[in-house]
Design a protein around this nucleic acid. Structure first.
Lengths: 184, 184, 184, 184
DNA sequence: TATGAATGAGTGTTCATTCAT
DNA sequence: CATGAATGAACACTCATTCAT
């Protein structure tokens, strides 16, 4: 029976990600259940609440992002690894609407119970700064703010590939070392 | 009766902006009505639809932004005018959630019937580029993408003043002229 | 001011008859007011209630029917006068939906306060029976039942001229004297 | 769960018939649900729309009428079978208001998806005409017009048993063969 | 006095959640 | 255990009626 349960859990998560990407936060449980090929009750067995389902999706996603960060941190070219990571996440979120959106809208604290994505990303940042690819006066807070901003806008306004490249180019230039005499 | 109607219209818009900021797009008409101290029917007399109310708020807001852009374009220091405008909008959207969000979610084309905010901002950008304050290879599309990104993240993640300053500093450095040999 | 009031009352009644014919009992007061070219408040000055307006229309209509009955009763050919009256009413009700419908739906007793349409029609019936055009064992109750039935069906099913003629032909044959050995 | 669903469907239909009979087309779904002892959602599970519920009731009723017609068509005395059928339907509709009313008001085409009540009744009519019980120059159109008229009036004006008998007697005499020299 | 803006109970309908099967 | 029928609070919206102007 454990096997069944796990298969169902996976199917539900998959279906939920699809439906949430398409219909946003207002997607109905019934639709998710239909796409997953299970009854609504089955979802509720695994996730006590709609919010819990959202949270699970986000956690799952974060886990993957943390894993990717760890992998890239082990790469040789630590400078380009950092920027590649940034690009990948933004590219991803163009498709996967839920990501950050769901959490914040539901009022859930993303940090609670989340895998240590912060730590993983920080590793990447520090290495890139040590390699001289990223300016040293940028902290995790600004970085995550910029990352979040790019993700939100990418999904919200449906950035195409060209726009994403041009916009990130500007953003990355801001992150690179240089003369930063001024601020607003 | 005209006086009453106008007072109520203003009260409704004010209440709607507050409630929408707090509860997002799922805010209920009844709650807006309660806060405004009017019956729901009164809202419907002025705005035939929930979406129409959203649109009215956004239009109102856009008008103000366009006006501000025009005013700043007439300023002496065109370089800092540009960055000041950017900062002001981001600061504003921290409080006023609806702004862009509502429109996109409702599938309304912001351009339709909207005041020419695009034109006003473009004036600001061109002047800043002529003054050498902004790099010349940045177009309106990237600029609006960055602006939208910052607004979305600011409201979504409740940027405090300090974070907003630090994040925009990075972003503005990316917009300033300099050596831009690289791109991701 | 009396003149104004009467003109308005007439305009409202006229508009109400049109709108009610088109939209049935669910017609809205606003629409009636718009068509009449007055404010809703003006209707309420004359008719305290939607039902009262309905009632007024029906009363007005009944008055006209009673008048017609009285005129026809004075005619020479009392036999054909009877059938002509029947036909006219049915023809009328094809167009004027409200007639009986409104009253019954509103739970109002048509008899209360109504002009003596019953008496007028009875005059017509008695004369026709005396002239040998209508069988003597038919009373007012059956007659009104048949009249009402034809009116209701005519409006409900949108009888065209041909169907109305054929159906009334059968009905009139039933009303004429003859051998009536049987009953259901 | 099938058992529950069916019991509830039956209860809903029963309650709807009662409420619609009492309050007409303006009956509220909430009231039907209350009388049926179920939540409103339960109605909507079975009937996607108020109109769909109406339609279901009418269809059900039509099915029964068609069945009755078929049974009577197989009877020996085809003449009295015809008149019996007519009487039965009128008697029925005194109680069940919705019957035809709902359909027409909702703008639904009764023919679409309806059981072949027309065919069943036509069988009855033709047999009665062959048996010499009904005059041959009466077609289906007039017959249904008269039937509809009697039903509408019976329910509309609450015909009692005596009035129904006397009124139908006249009507039936019009349908029987005889000298029909005249028309209005 | 006429107007139409304001009111709010009421409508049809949806959907997260529960629970009998 | 999975299912999906049942639930009912909540929603956007309408409209008869009132009342300030």
């Amino acid at each position: 029976m454990r096997a069944d349960a796990q298969r169902n859990r996976a199917r539900v998560l998959e279906a939920a990600e699809v439906v949430l990407a398409r219909d946003g936060l207002s997607a109905s449980m019934r639709e998710i259940a239909n796409l997953a090929g299970v009854g609504v009750g089955t979802i509720y067995r695994q996730f006590p609440t709609k919010e819990a389902l959202y949270q699970a999706i986000v956690m799952d996603r974060m886990r993957r992002l943390a894993t990717l960060a760890d992998e890239l941190a082990a790469a040789d070219d630590t400078g380009s690894a950092f920027f590649e990571y940034f690009s990948t996440i933004v590219e991803d979120s163009t498709v996967k609407k839920v990501l950050v959106d769901a959490l914040a809208a539901a009022g859930i604290d993303a940090k609670a119970g989340a895998p240590d994505i912060r730590g993983s990303v920080e590793g990447l940042l520090v290495r890139a700064q040590e390699a001289g690819a990223v300016r040293k006066d940028v902290g995790m807070e600004e970085l995550l703010a910029l990352l979040s901003a790019a993700c939100l806008a990418a999904q919200h306004n449906n950035w195409d590939e060209s726009l994403r490249a041009r916009t990130l180019a500007v953003l990355f230039d801001g992150l690179r070392p240089g003369d930063h005499a001024s601020s607003p």
